[in-house]
Write a protein that binds this DNA or RNA. Structure first.
Length: 258
DNA sequence: TAGCCGATCCCCT
DNA sequence: GGGGATCGGCTAA
């Protein structure tokens, strides 16, 4: 797996809602689609071409797509992506790659688009990122709408989470946070640096078609208070009105950042 | 429902 | 040696 090519910084390329990358669907006639139809009507996985775009449009394009995890016993878990955050690379003070620092931990951020960057946070949780175009740039997956395998997810969450394991988790508690979705989908450090376009145990599928375009809210990212002006940039994206989102930002929604 | 705070340990400086 | 892209229980209103 090669390192991705260097690109100019993408920070100035934040897009307004009207010109964001299409969340799904075919490209213009005559162009090759990044979506591949699978046999038997089942949508096939998204390929490397899908991931090969800057972090902001990728963060938007990921909304509505379906993350699939095949467990060792063959069980398939599916969740629709409803919340993401873009991390833009060296210039982004909130990114692990800020200042261009590349370490053994964050190497996945610098690998080819579609590479997973999974890291341990607070000593006990995992977070899952997808590398995008641009050196050190990636997208954090923050929340999923559980579609398939909810009971397996509930078991995984109950087993892995700390504290009292007696309470039965509601569906909304399964994947409404970056570390919750890692627990529910059984994603850990072993998935670091895997290729979403090629791996046998985890991949992305084109989401089911929606009537009309998804309403997307852009809001400041969560939990990065130390990053100065970068903490305020609207680099978190979520599906407006979705009950599966981890943190709803009423102010951003009223500001029309959608 | 919102806000506070402790848990826990890897990674970086 | 210190901090962190979080979570969930507890308390107050």
């Amino acid at each position: 797996m090669g390192l991705k090519r260097q690109r100019p910084p993408e920070a100035k390329q934040q897009r307004g809602p009207a010109e964001g990358a299409p969340a799904r669907g075919e490209g213009p006639p005559g162009t090759r689609s990044v979506y591949f139809s699978g046999p038997g009507g089942r949508p096939a996985r998204l390929g490397t071409e899908f991931f090969d775009q800057p972090a902001v449009p990728l963060a938007r394009a990921l909304l509505g797509q379906v993350l699939v995890r095949r467990l060792s016993d063959g069980t398939e878990l599916r969740g629709r992506v409803v919340e993401t955050e873009a991390y833009l690379g060296p210039e982004d003070a909130a990114a692990h790659s800020r200042g261009g620092r590349q370490t053994a931990r964050n190497r996945g951020m610098f690998m080819q688009p579609g590479t997973l960057y999974v890291y341990l946070i607070y000593g006990l949780y995992f977070c899952m990122n997808v590398s995008s175009q641009g050196a050190g740039a990636c997208v954090l997956l923050r929340a999923l709408e559980p579609l398939e395998g909810q009971e397996a997810m509930r078991q995984l969450r109950s087993t892995l989470r700390r504290g009292s394991a007696g309470r039965t988790l509601k569906d909304r508690e399964l994947c409404s946070g970056p570390s919750k979705l890692c627990q529910a989908m059984a994603i850990d450090k072993g998935f670091d640096q895997r290729d979403l376009a090629a791996d046998e145990a985890v991949w992305l599928e084109q989401g089911p078609p929606e009537p009309g375009e998804l309403a997307v809210v852009a809001a400041p990212r969560v939990g990065i208070g130390q990053a100065g002006e970068w903490a305020l940039k609207p680099l978190r994206f979520y599906v407006r009105g979705s009950p599966w989102v981890s943190v709803v930002d009423r102010a951003a929604e009223q500001n029309g950042q959608a």
